[in-house]
Every structure is written in C-alpha cells, then in structure tokens.
C-alpha cells in the first residue's frame, strides 16, 4: 500500500520552474530517500505535500488524504522536520517542546524527556544559545513527539555530528519497524545508501530515476574499471552475467582491475556529469 502518492505535480514560481510533472509513490513502512542538488526541487516537493505552497497542477495525498483539502488531518498523522530549524529567540527548549506538545491530542511529557535525554539535549537552555546541531535535535524531537504515521524530513542530519546522525537514524529505523513511513531529503548520499529502501533522484525539478536500494536490479549494476598493459583505462556499468564478465576480462592483459557495486553517489553523479 502506498502512503504518499504524488501525481503529475507541477509548481512554477512565476516563470521559474520549481518542479514539473513529479510522480512519486512511497510505500507504507519504508524509508524513502529524496536526493538532488540544491534548487533541484526537493523542498518544493515536500512543501507541496504539506500544503505550504500550492502547486499549479497535479495531486498529492498522504494516507489517502488530499494534501490540499485535508491538511489538518494530514498534520495530525504527519511529522515534519524543516530544513532550516529556526525557532523563537529567547524561548527555552522545554517551553518550545511544550508549545509543540500543546497542539497534540496525546501529550506524552515522559516521552519528550526520554527523547531529550537520548539526544543529549539540555531542555533548560535558551534556543538562541544553541548551535545548529542542537536546534536540529529539537526539530527531530518535535517531529517524533506526536507519534506520527508518516515522518517527512528535510535534511535531517545536516549540522549533526556523525554520532548524532547515527542516533537519528537508529530512532528512524525503530519507527520504521513500527510501520511508520519515512520520507527524507538529504545531501548525504552515504546515509541514503545505508538506510533508505528506495531513492528518487530529482534534477531540475523532474524525477530522473527511482532506485531500489536492495532490489535485484541494483545488485546487477556493477561498476567495472580496468587498465590494460598498453595503459588504456576503461570504466563502465555492467548489468549482465558476472561469469560472462569474468570470462571477458580474462582474455585481456590487465594491469589493474576494480569491480564494485555502483554506489548511489555514482548513480547520482551520472545525472550531473558535465555540470
């Protein structure tokens, strides 16, 4: 069953293209990555999903609820972590989290405390005294405290140290195991590769590829790089039978050989080659 469905969505900012004819389906209980360069259309897609901007055309739904007409119901079941975590200056962390909690039907203060402890966040600090990383932690806690069915995260780990990044994903994986659907945009292709089930690559406002991270199709994509004795270097993606590849390579006089599965980073870069 698909939790998030985007059909032919287009958004122009005046004459400038935000996204064009975006089609996406995110399955229930999966972690779906969304990658692209700055300005490729990731945030526009996320904002359209949450009715922060109105698309020119197309439709989107979350758990069968229309993103334009049923925003309130969507907000009830969806958590959102914005890319830029700016809060009210002078407010204490605990006051902000209680403020967020005041909009939730179920107010689990113990869970908030537990999350603050887990993410090593001092609740009594003022927000304007916090680093970007600590403000990001507030955003993550705020997203989790409403116990959502869907979590949408825009650059969830930017500004966090590697240990904290791992902690964020540990929590997200726990949520995934509970059946929560996670849709995240990121520039960190290693974390996308490590944690996502599927990834969509967006370029110039259009989805150019959706990749199954653990699928058989992906396992078949081998990146072959070799140098022959006459110093000729070859690099290509091989999708055929591995034994045939070995047999073919065996006929050559090679000085070096590298065969590896194509990483998401390499797949990503192929769309941006020459830019």
């Amino acid at each position: 069953m698909n939790t998030i469905v985007i059909k032919s969505m287009t958004k122009y900012y005046g004459k400038n293209k935000g996204i064009e004819n975006v089609n996406l389906e995110v399955k229930e209980g999966e972690i779906f990555g969304f990658v692209g360069k700055n300005g490729a259309g990731k945030t526009t897609t996320i904002r359209s999903l949450l009715n922060m901007i109105t698309p020119n055309s197309g439709q989107a739904s979350i758990c069968g609820l229309d993103c334009l007409r049923q925003t309130k119901e969507i907000k009830k079941i969806t958590a959102y972590l914005p890319g830029e975590v700016e809060y009210y200056q002078g407010m204490k962390v605990i006051d902000l989290l209680n403020y967020a909690l005041s909009f939730c039907e179920e107010k689990d203060y113990a869970y908030v405390n537990k999350l603050c402890e887990y993410f090593e966040l001092d609740k009594n600090r003022k927000i304007n005294e916090l680093s970007l990383g600590n403000r990001k932690k507030i955003g993550v806690i705020q997203a989790l405290l409403k116990k959502p069915k869907v979590i949408i995260l825009d650059e969830p780990t930017s500004g966090l140290d590697p240990l904290m990044q791992a902690k964020v994903f540990d929590v997200l994986i726990k949520e995934k195991k509970k059946g929560v659907t996670i849709f995240l945009s990121s520039h960190n292709l290693q974390e996308i590769e490590k944690y996502c089930d599927r990834v969509a690559i967006i370029k110039d406002g259009e989805i150019v590829e959706v990749i199954e991270m653990n699928g058989k199709a992906r396992e078949k994509k081998l990146l072959v790089r070799y140098v022959t004795s006459d110093n000729t270097e070859q690099k290509y993606v091989y999708t055929g039978n591995i034994n045939d590849l070995i047999a073919e390579l065996n006929k050559m006089d090679l000085t070096s050989l590298e065969i590896k599965y194509q990483s998401i980073e390499e797949e990503f870069q192929k769309f941006y080659k020459g830019e």
Binding site: M52, E84, E86, L96, Q142, K146
Partner: peptide, 8 residues
C-alpha cells in the same frame, strides 16, 4: 516552519 510542523 515550527507552526507548519505542528497540528495547527
């Protein structure tokens, strides 16, 4: 962004 992320 904060208000956009809460149920309001």
């Amino acid at each position: 962004e904060f208000l956009n992320s809460v149920q309001v």
